[in-house]
Design a binder for these strands. Structure first.
Length: 299
DNA sequence: ACCCAGGCGGGCG
DNA sequence: CGCCCGCATGGG
Protein backbone atom coordinates (compact mmCIF):
# COMPACT_ATOMS: atom_id res chain seq x y z
CA UNK A 1 0.00 0.00 0.00
CA UNK A 2 1.25 3.47 -0.80
CA UNK A 3 2.10 5.71 2.10
CA UNK A 4 -0.29 8.57 1.36
CA UNK A 5 -3.37 6.35 1.63
CA UNK A 6 -5.70 7.03 4.52
CA UNK A 7 -7.51 4.57 6.72
CA UNK A 8 -11.07 4.15 7.96
CA UNK A 9 -12.88 1.59 10.08
CA UNK A 10 -16.32 0.06 9.69
CA UNK A 11 -17.96 -2.08 12.39
CA UNK A 12 -19.07 -5.48 11.10
CA UNK A 13 -21.05 -8.40 12.45
CA UNK A 14 -21.41 -11.93 11.07
CA UNK A 15 -18.71 -11.37 8.50
CA UNK A 16 -15.77 -13.47 7.29
CA UNK A 17 -13.43 -11.87 4.80
CA UNK A 18 -11.51 -15.04 4.03
CA UNK A 19 -14.55 -17.17 3.20
CA UNK A 20 -16.01 -14.28 1.22
CA UNK A 21 -12.82 -13.89 -0.76
CA UNK A 22 -12.23 -17.59 -1.32
CA UNK A 23 -15.74 -18.50 -2.45
CA UNK A 24 -15.12 -17.90 -6.16
CA UNK A 25 -16.70 -14.50 -6.56
CA UNK A 26 -15.36 -11.81 -8.92
CA UNK A 27 -12.96 -10.39 -6.30
CA UNK A 28 -11.37 -13.81 -6.12
CA UNK A 29 -10.55 -13.61 -9.80
CA UNK A 30 -8.35 -10.55 -9.63
CA UNK A 31 -7.67 -9.47 -6.03
CA UNK A 32 -4.87 -10.66 -3.76
CA UNK A 33 -5.48 -12.14 -0.34
CA UNK A 34 -2.92 -11.89 2.44
CA UNK A 35 -3.74 -14.58 5.00
CA UNK A 36 -1.17 -13.17 7.43
CA UNK A 37 -3.07 -9.92 7.88
CA UNK A 38 -6.48 -11.24 6.82
CA UNK A 39 -6.71 -8.52 4.21
CA UNK A 40 -7.30 -8.23 0.50
CA UNK A 41 -5.96 -5.84 -2.10
CA UNK A 42 -8.05 -4.96 -5.12
CA UNK A 43 -8.55 -2.27 -7.70
CA UNK A 44 -11.59 -0.01 -7.80
CA UNK A 45 -11.31 1.70 -11.16
CA UNK A 46 -7.79 3.13 -11.09
CA UNK A 47 -7.66 3.24 -7.32
CA UNK A 48 -6.06 0.60 -5.15
CA UNK A 49 -7.99 -0.45 -2.07
CA UNK A 50 -6.96 -2.60 0.86
CA UNK A 51 -9.60 -4.12 3.11
CA UNK A 52 -8.71 -6.03 6.24
CA UNK A 53 -10.72 -7.70 8.97
CA UNK A 54 -9.87 -7.77 12.66
CA UNK A 55 -11.69 -8.65 15.84
CA UNK A 56 -13.52 -11.79 14.80
CA UNK A 57 -16.54 -12.83 12.77
CA UNK A 58 -19.39 -12.27 15.21
CA UNK A 59 -18.35 -8.68 15.99
CA UNK A 60 -15.37 -7.14 14.32
CA UNK A 61 -13.89 -4.29 12.35
CA UNK A 62 -13.29 -3.80 8.66
CA UNK A 63 -10.36 -1.51 7.97
CA UNK A 64 -10.36 0.22 4.60
CA UNK A 65 -7.22 1.82 3.23
CA UNK A 66 -7.16 3.94 0.08
CA UNK A 67 -6.18 7.28 -1.41
CA UNK A 68 -9.88 7.73 -2.18
CA UNK A 69 -11.06 6.76 1.28
CA UNK A 70 -14.59 8.13 1.10
CA UNK A 71 -15.38 6.36 -2.15
CA UNK A 72 -13.65 3.18 -1.02
CA UNK A 73 -15.62 3.11 2.25
CA UNK A 74 -18.97 3.53 0.52
CA UNK A 75 -17.91 0.97 -2.06
CA UNK A 76 -16.94 -1.54 0.65
CA UNK A 77 -20.32 -1.20 2.37
CA UNK A 78 -22.02 -2.04 -0.91
CA UNK A 79 -19.48 -4.57 -2.16
CA UNK A 80 -19.56 -6.67 1.01
CA UNK A 81 -23.28 -6.14 1.58
CA UNK A 82 -22.67 -4.84 5.09
CA UNK A 83 -26.31 -3.79 5.35
CA UNK A 84 -27.51 -7.38 5.16
CA UNK A 85 -28.88 -8.85 8.38
CA UNK A 86 -27.13 -12.20 8.17
CA UNK A 87 -28.85 -13.72 11.21
CA UNK A 88 -32.19 -13.05 9.57
CA UNK A 89 -30.99 -14.41 6.22
CA UNK A 90 -29.63 -17.51 7.95
CA UNK A 91 -33.00 -18.09 9.62
CA UNK A 92 -34.63 -17.98 6.20
CA UNK A 93 -32.25 -20.21 4.27
CA UNK A 94 -31.37 -22.65 7.05
CA UNK A 95 -34.10 -25.19 6.38
CA UNK A 96 -32.16 -28.45 6.39
CA UNK A 97 -29.09 -30.24 7.68
CA UNK A 98 -26.92 -29.50 4.67
CA UNK A 99 -27.47 -25.74 4.72
CA UNK A 100 -27.08 -25.73 8.50
CA UNK A 101 -23.68 -27.36 8.16
CA UNK A 102 -22.62 -25.07 5.30
CA UNK A 103 -23.55 -22.03 7.39
CA UNK A 104 -21.64 -23.44 10.35
CA UNK A 105 -18.51 -23.98 8.27
CA UNK A 106 -18.65 -20.78 6.26
CA UNK A 107 -20.20 -18.54 8.89
CA UNK A 108 -20.00 -14.93 7.77
CA UNK A 109 -19.45 -15.65 4.08
CA UNK A 110 -21.11 -12.82 2.18
CA UNK A 111 -22.26 -12.43 -1.34
CA UNK A 112 -20.40 -9.55 -2.95
CA UNK A 113 -21.63 -6.82 -5.29
CA UNK A 114 -19.00 -6.00 -7.87
CA UNK A 115 -18.70 -3.70 -10.84
CA UNK A 116 -21.23 -4.89 -13.49
CA UNK A 117 -18.79 -4.90 -16.40
CA UNK A 118 -16.07 -6.62 -14.37
CA UNK A 119 -18.58 -9.21 -13.28
CA UNK A 120 -19.77 -9.75 -16.84
CA UNK A 121 -16.27 -10.32 -18.15
CA UNK A 122 -15.34 -12.60 -15.25
CA UNK A 123 -18.36 -14.83 -15.73
CA UNK A 124 -18.03 -14.98 -19.50
CA UNK A 125 -14.53 -16.30 -18.81
CA UNK A 126 -15.92 -18.69 -16.20
CA UNK A 127 -17.97 -20.87 -18.52
CA UNK A 128 -16.77 -24.45 -18.92
CA UNK A 129 -13.71 -23.46 -16.93
CA UNK A 130 -12.27 -23.82 -13.43
CA UNK A 131 -11.63 -21.22 -10.74
CA UNK A 132 -7.86 -21.43 -10.88
CA UNK A 133 -7.72 -20.81 -14.60
CA UNK A 134 -10.41 -18.12 -14.52
CA UNK A 135 -8.21 -16.27 -12.08
CA UNK A 136 -5.18 -16.65 -14.31
CA UNK A 137 -7.00 -15.42 -17.40
CA UNK A 138 -8.55 -12.40 -15.67
CA UNK A 139 -5.15 -11.41 -14.34
CA UNK A 140 -3.62 -11.68 -17.80
CA UNK A 141 -6.37 -9.45 -19.21
CA UNK A 142 -5.75 -6.89 -16.47
CA UNK A 143 -2.02 -6.82 -17.11
CA UNK A 144 -2.34 -6.52 -20.88
CA UNK A 145 -5.35 -4.26 -21.24
CA UNK A 146 -5.78 -2.49 -17.90
CA UNK A 147 -4.27 0.92 -17.22
CA UNK A 148 -1.05 0.85 -15.23
CA UNK A 149 -1.39 2.24 -11.72
CA UNK A 150 1.79 3.86 -10.46
CA UNK A 151 3.08 4.71 -7.03
CA UNK A 152 4.67 8.06 -6.07
CA UNK A 153 7.98 7.10 -7.60
CA UNK A 154 6.38 6.27 -10.95
CA UNK A 155 6.71 2.53 -10.59
CA UNK A 156 3.77 0.44 -11.84
CA UNK A 157 2.35 -1.47 -8.90
CA UNK A 158 -0.93 -2.74 -10.36
CA UNK A 159 -3.23 -2.62 -13.35
CA UNK A 160 -6.84 -1.52 -13.40
CA UNK A 161 -9.52 -3.91 -14.53
CA UNK A 162 -9.88 -3.15 -18.28
CA UNK A 163 -13.02 -1.26 -19.23
CA UNK A 164 -14.91 -2.48 -22.28
CA UNK A 165 -13.30 0.20 -24.47
CA UNK A 166 -9.85 -0.87 -23.33
CA UNK A 167 -10.44 -4.21 -25.06
CA UNK A 168 -11.61 -2.80 -28.40
CA UNK A 169 -8.16 -3.04 -29.95
CA UNK A 170 -7.70 -6.67 -29.01
CA UNK A 171 -8.16 -9.28 -31.74
CA UNK A 172 -9.54 -12.73 -31.06
CA UNK A 173 -6.01 -14.00 -31.43
CA UNK A 174 -4.71 -11.46 -28.88
CA UNK A 175 -7.42 -12.50 -26.45
CA UNK A 176 -6.65 -16.16 -26.91
CA UNK A 177 -3.09 -15.27 -26.04
CA UNK A 178 -4.41 -14.40 -22.58
CA UNK A 179 -5.74 -17.94 -22.27
CA UNK A 180 -9.40 -17.20 -22.96
CA UNK A 181 -9.65 -20.11 -25.40
CA UNK A 182 -12.94 -20.47 -27.26
CA UNK A 183 -14.38 -17.63 -25.13
CA UNK A 184 -12.20 -15.09 -26.95
CA UNK A 185 -14.92 -14.25 -29.48
CA UNK A 186 -17.39 -13.78 -26.61
CA UNK A 187 -15.02 -11.37 -24.89
CA UNK A 188 -14.56 -9.43 -28.11
CA UNK A 189 -18.29 -9.17 -28.70
CA UNK A 190 -18.95 -8.20 -25.08
CA UNK A 191 -16.37 -5.42 -25.30
CA UNK A 192 -17.91 -4.05 -28.50
CA UNK A 193 -21.51 -4.49 -27.41
CA UNK A 194 -20.99 -2.90 -24.01
CA UNK A 195 -19.07 0.01 -25.53
CA UNK A 196 -21.41 0.82 -28.41
CA UNK A 197 -24.81 -0.79 -27.80
CA UNK A 198 -25.52 -1.36 -24.15
CA UNK A 199 -24.79 0.87 -21.17
CA UNK A 200 -24.53 -1.86 -18.61
CA UNK A 201 -24.44 0.74 -15.84
CA UNK A 202 -27.93 1.93 -16.66
CA UNK A 203 -29.71 -1.38 -16.20
CA UNK A 204 -32.18 -1.59 -13.33
CA UNK A 205 -30.69 -3.96 -10.72
CA UNK A 206 -34.04 -4.82 -9.18
CA UNK A 207 -35.94 -5.84 -12.31
CA UNK A 208 -34.70 -9.41 -12.58
CA UNK A 209 -36.47 -10.34 -15.83
CA UNK A 210 -35.47 -7.25 -17.81
CA UNK A 211 -31.97 -7.26 -16.35
CA UNK A 212 -31.15 -10.83 -17.33
CA UNK A 213 -32.88 -10.46 -20.68
CA UNK A 214 -30.69 -7.45 -21.50
CA UNK A 215 -27.52 -9.23 -20.34
CA UNK A 216 -28.28 -12.28 -22.46
CA UNK A 217 -28.02 -10.12 -25.59
CA UNK A 218 -24.27 -10.33 -25.04
CA UNK A 219 -22.70 -13.28 -26.83
CA UNK A 220 -21.41 -15.73 -24.26
CA UNK A 221 -23.99 -14.73 -21.67
CA UNK A 222 -26.68 -17.38 -21.25
CA UNK A 223 -29.02 -18.05 -18.34
CA UNK A 224 -26.40 -19.14 -15.86
CA UNK A 225 -23.92 -16.37 -16.55
CA UNK A 226 -26.71 -13.78 -16.59
CA UNK A 227 -27.79 -15.03 -13.17
CA UNK A 228 -24.23 -14.69 -11.86
CA UNK A 229 -24.03 -11.13 -13.17
CA UNK A 230 -27.44 -10.24 -11.73
CA UNK A 231 -26.41 -11.65 -8.36
CA UNK A 232 -22.78 -10.58 -8.03
CA UNK A 233 -22.72 -7.55 -10.33
CA UNK A 234 -26.08 -6.00 -9.43
CA UNK A 235 -26.84 -7.53 -6.04
CA UNK A 236 -30.13 -9.05 -7.16
CA UNK A 237 -30.60 -12.00 -4.79
CA UNK A 238 -33.57 -13.30 -6.76
CA UNK A 239 -31.01 -14.67 -9.20
CA UNK A 240 -30.20 -18.35 -8.77
CA UNK A 241 -27.20 -19.40 -10.88
CA UNK A 242 -27.18 -23.15 -11.46
CA UNK A 243 -23.73 -24.47 -12.23
CA UNK A 244 -22.51 -28.06 -12.11
CA UNK A 245 -21.95 -27.91 -8.34
CA UNK A 246 -25.32 -26.42 -7.49
CA UNK A 247 -27.04 -28.98 -9.69
CA UNK A 248 -25.04 -31.90 -8.36
CA UNK A 249 -25.44 -30.88 -4.73
CA UNK A 250 -29.17 -30.20 -4.97
CA UNK A 251 -29.84 -33.50 -6.69
CA UNK A 252 -27.91 -35.35 -3.99
CA UNK A 253 -29.29 -33.49 -0.98
CA UNK A 254 -32.89 -32.78 -1.94
CA UNK A 255 -33.81 -35.31 -4.65
CA UNK A 256 -32.20 -38.60 -3.63
CA UNK A 257 -29.71 -38.29 -6.48
CA UNK A 258 -32.33 -38.08 -9.21
CA UNK A 259 -31.57 -35.88 -12.21
CA UNK A 260 -33.45 -32.60 -12.28
CA UNK A 261 -33.63 -29.85 -14.88
CA UNK A 262 -32.49 -26.31 -14.07
CA UNK A 263 -36.11 -25.24 -14.27
CA UNK A 264 -37.12 -27.75 -11.58
CA UNK A 265 -34.21 -26.76 -9.36
CA UNK A 266 -35.00 -23.09 -9.74
CA UNK A 267 -38.65 -23.65 -8.81
CA UNK A 268 -37.61 -25.63 -5.74
CA UNK A 269 -35.35 -22.79 -4.57
CA UNK A 270 -37.90 -20.12 -5.42
CA UNK A 271 -40.65 -21.81 -3.44
CA UNK A 272 -38.45 -22.21 -0.38
CA UNK A 273 -36.36 -19.06 -0.37
CA UNK A 274 -38.02 -16.56 -2.73
CA UNK A 275 -35.92 -13.43 -3.08
CA UNK A 276 -33.24 -14.87 -0.80
CA UNK A 277 -32.46 -17.81 -3.07
CA UNK A 278 -29.31 -16.08 -4.30
CA UNK A 279 -27.86 -16.27 -0.80
CA UNK A 280 -28.93 -19.89 -0.50
CA UNK A 281 -27.14 -20.54 -3.77
CA UNK A 282 -23.83 -19.16 -2.47
CA UNK A 283 -23.84 -21.54 0.51
CA UNK A 284 -25.03 -24.37 -1.70
CA UNK A 285 -22.34 -23.76 -4.29
CA UNK A 286 -19.42 -23.26 -1.94
CA UNK A 287 -20.59 -25.79 0.65
CA UNK A 288 -21.34 -28.40 -2.00
CA UNK A 289 -18.00 -27.90 -3.69
CA UNK A 290 -15.93 -27.93 -0.51
CA UNK A 291 -17.88 -30.72 1.17
CA UNK A 292 -18.22 -32.77 -2.03
CA UNK A 293 -17.49 -36.25 -0.62
CA UNK A 294 -19.57 -35.66 2.52
CA UNK A 295 -22.65 -34.25 0.83
CA UNK A 296 -24.42 -37.61 0.97
CA UNK A 297 -24.33 -37.53 4.77
CA UNK A 298 -26.64 -34.52 4.79
CA UNK A 299 -29.21 -35.86 2.33
C1' DA B 1 -4.03 -41.24 -21.39
C1' DC B 2 -8.52 -39.56 -19.53
C1' DC B 3 -11.68 -36.52 -17.01
C1' DC B 4 -13.29 -32.29 -15.48
C1' DA B 5 -14.09 -27.24 -14.99
C1' DG B 6 -19.26 -21.43 -11.63
C1' DG B 7 -21.92 -23.11 -20.12
C1' DC B 8 -23.07 -21.28 -24.49
C1' DG B 9 -24.45 -21.08 -29.38
C1' DG B 10 -26.16 -23.49 -33.07
C1' DG B 11 -28.46 -27.18 -35.31
C1' DC B 12 -31.88 -30.61 -35.20
C1' DG B 13 -36.38 -32.96 -34.28
C1' DC C 1 -39.42 -26.63 -26.12
C1' DG C 2 -35.79 -30.40 -25.43
C1' DC C 3 -31.56 -32.75 -26.79
C1' DC C 4 -26.85 -33.09 -28.61
C1' DC C 5 -22.56 -31.43 -30.05
C1' DG C 6 -18.19 -28.85 -30.35
C1' DC C 7 -15.46 -25.84 -28.05
C1' DA C 8 -9.58 -24.20 -25.87
C1' DT C 9 -6.90 -24.98 -21.99
C1' DG C 10 -4.59 -26.67 -17.98
C1' DG C 11 -4.67 -29.32 -13.69
C1' DG C 12 -5.66 -33.75 -11.17
Amino acid sequence: MTTDASTGNIPISVFDLRHTFESAQPLTFHADYNPGSNSILYTMGRTIVSVGQSGGNEKGTLTVMSKELGIAMRDAVKRFRLGDDMKRIYRIINTDRFTDEAIRRYYGMRLTVNDPWETTLCFIISQFNNVKRIRKIVRALKERYGQPIKDNTGRTIAHSFPESKDLLGASVKDLMGCGTGFRARYVKHAAEYCTYNLDIYKLNPTDYDKLTEALMEINGVGEKVADCIALMGYGNTEAFPIDVWVKRTMERVYFKGRKKTPKQLRRFADERYGKYKGYFQQYLFWGGRQMDEEVGAYA
